[in-house]
Simulated scan of single mutants.
Amino acid sequence: MRTAYNTLPDLMLEPLVRNALLEDLGLSGDVTTRAVIPYATTWQARMVAREPGIVSGMQIAALAFRLVDAELDIRVIVPDGAPCAPGDLLMEITGRAHSLLQAERVALNFAGRMAGIATQTAAFAAETRGTDARIACTRKTTPGLRIIEKQAVIHGGGHPHRYSLGDAVLIKDNHIAAAGGVREVLEAAHAVTSHMMRIEIEVDRLDQLEEVIAAGGADVVLLDNMDTETMRRAVEMVDRRMITEASGNMRLERIAAVAATGVDYISVGALTHSVRTLDLGLDF
């Protein structure tokens, strides 16, 4: 758990939570709660883990409750990035029952999904133990939720890749074809790229890698959809002249073998695009 990155400014998260609350409240608000529960009723709610995992989303869940009612008393018991077991108390919220019920589903939706991402990331990261390989996420995120989904990856012990297209140069096969070849595309990238920005280029064959090494100018090479033995040979060819990243078909059962090839990073789209929500409940 890297505590320096465990939180983001609420200012960055508030638009996401506000939109989710407005979506859930609809045009008429919580008509059920208004109909059956007196406004002055107060409760204590307890967010509880119903299965083991890595906690994430506590910050954004707490924000959901605060945006509905700033007078709620919110106490986070298990912080983002920490493990949880079935039955563990994660958060206590005390205050007006109307407010608790209005924020309940949005808070659980965020917390459950983020904890699912963190838990899946931790499972992938565990397969790299004993190596220097790091697990990284991709841009295959839920539209509008990238900032918190990448944060959840960090909570699970993973590393963020590019946040957006503007973060780094990543040259793929279509770029190479349009530019006329490996050397041409690297020269073109260098001509317009700041010295502060890394250049990464994708290869899926060893002869392409030979071209990249001969041309020079790349900081990172993406070894895409290679079988494990070919990847091992590619890492040997690079010989630390570039950072190596493995990508494509990165299933959990394959990660240990890929990490053992000596690659620096293993990027996994499934951390965010195929995750299962962790089962959390809010008990009153």
Rank of each mutant, 00 (worst) to 15 (best):
H195N: 13
D69E: 08
F284Q: 09
E92M: 10
E211C: 08
I37R: 01
L282S: 00
V169T: 01
D73G: 09
V48A: 03
G144T: 09
A125R: 05
T42M: 11
D10N: 13
E236T: 14
G112W: 02
E229V: 14
E211Q: 15
A168G: 10
E184A: 14
R251P: 08
A179W: 06
I77K: 12
R66F: 06
A179T: 06
P160E: 13
L209G: 02
H175V: 06
E253N: 14
L27R: 15
I74E: 02
T230P: 10
G87M: 10
A136L: 13
C137Y: 00
A85R: 14
A115R: 00
V182D: 05
R75C: 12
E104P: 06
A260V: 08
L223F: 09
L186Y: 11
S267G: 09
D283W: 09
H195L: 13
T42N: 13
T32E: 10
H190E: 11
E253Y: 13
I213T: 02
A111P: 04
G158M: 05
M58K: 00
T33M: 01
G158Q: 03
E245L: 02
I135P: 01
V212G: 03
A103W: 04
Q59W: 04
H195I: 12
G217Y: 06
M197F: 15
R198P: 07
I117K: 00
L271P: 02
M114A: 10
G157H: 07
E51L: 09
D132P: 11
V263P: 00
T3G: 06
Y265S: 00
A133F: 03
I199F: 10
I266M: 09
M250P: 07
G156F: 03
I243V: 15
R146L: 08
V76D: 02
D167S: 08
I147N: 02
T277F: 14
A126T: 00
